[in-house]
Nucleic acid binder design. Structure first.
Length: 276
DNA sequence: ATTGGTTCCTGCTGGC
DNA sequence: TGCCAGCAGGAACCAA
């Protein structure tokens, strides 16, 4: 499940390998994913040179010179596969491919693969985040959020803090796994009303978010089912998860069992003794 | 306005 | 051992 660290890992891998390459050919094998691909996708980016790859929340952005940027979201099961020739035939879930060529003639094929098709590929005209409705509404990046910033976006909210962290308009890029982990690191109950997080807890939660996300990026993300780095390598942060997926196991702090319950249709993992 | 519930989709898992 | 129901979840959408 790609969250911020997984998308960051993918973007770092892409940046290192495709910057300077030119889009040679665009092949869509279906009309779209969650949303239709732009009708004129191929015409608008063909021939354009990749100048940068960046991330906003869980979105990746491939920046092109003199063309709209390519915006992508990996949804639940999406991954990006980058491979040199000879290109194997596309698999059943390889929905879109960009064939790239460098100035020296090197070739790479960039494939959007997404079995569950919760992902998205769109264009970002002008390259400015505000130009896209899905980016415009996003909250602050949690990777470098401060306690006061976090407290400000949580203020007045009656929803449980866990639900608030998953709301991309509150904080952008946190998903179910890292929400659980950050709350555990901060020793805050997932049931606590967001608005009751005061300065001390906000400081702890901001630190929990920053540290868990940075640690996960360092480990190449978490590979539970679907995530892979560019080139197919797994991420390893799932080994360092302290509560997510560990129902019944001993809490590392107090040795009492980690509990699981459903919150807004999502599984929440926590230690009822440590988290208040 | 905010919040909670439902839906999309396929692959994996667990219980029989 | 094999089958299949149920679960996994990001976020748009809808209803309250």
């Amino acid at each position: 499940m790609p969250e911020l660290p997984e998308v960051e890992t993918v973007c770092l891998g892409l940046r290192a390998r495709v910057r300077g390459f030119t889009v040679d050919r665009v092949t869509a094998r279906r009309p779209g994913l969650r949303f239709p691909f732009p009708a004129d996708l191929a015409e608008r980016i063909a021939g354009a040179r990749i100048t940068a790859v960046r991330r906003r929340a869980k979105y990746g952005i491939i920046v092109l010179a003199d063309a709209p940027a390519v915006l992508f979201h990996l949804g639940m099961s999406g991954r990006i596969v980058l491979e040199p020739p000879p290109y194997p035939p596309p698999g059943p879930h390889d929905h879109l491919a960009l064939e790239l060529v460098s100035a020296s003639g090197a070739q790479l094929r960039l494939t959007f693969r997404d079995p569950r098709r919760f992902g998205l590929v769109d264009l970002l005209p002008g390259g400015a985040d505000a130009a896209h409705p899905r980016l415009r509404e996003l909250g602050p990046e949690p990777l470098d959020i401060t306690g006061p910033e976090l407290r400000a976006v949580l203020r007045g909210r009656a929803a449980p803090i866990k639900a608030a962290l998953l709301d991309q308009r509150v904080v952008a890029g946190v998903g179910n796994i890292y929400a659980c982990e950050a709350l555990f690191r901060a020793r805050i109950s997932p049931r606590r009303r967001a608005g009751t997080v005061g300065p001390r807890r906000a400081e702890a939660l901001a630190a929990g978010l920053r540290s868990v996300l940075a640690d996960a990026i360092r480990a190449g993300g978490s590979t539970l089912r679907d995530h892979a780095q560019i080139g197919g390598e797994a991420g390893w942060f799932q080994r360092e998860l302290l509560v997510y997926g560990r129902a019944g196991e001993a809490c590392i702090a107090c040795a009492r069992p980690i509990r699981q319950f459903r919150q807004g249709g999502r599984s929440t993992f926590h230690c009822p003794a440590c988290q208040r």
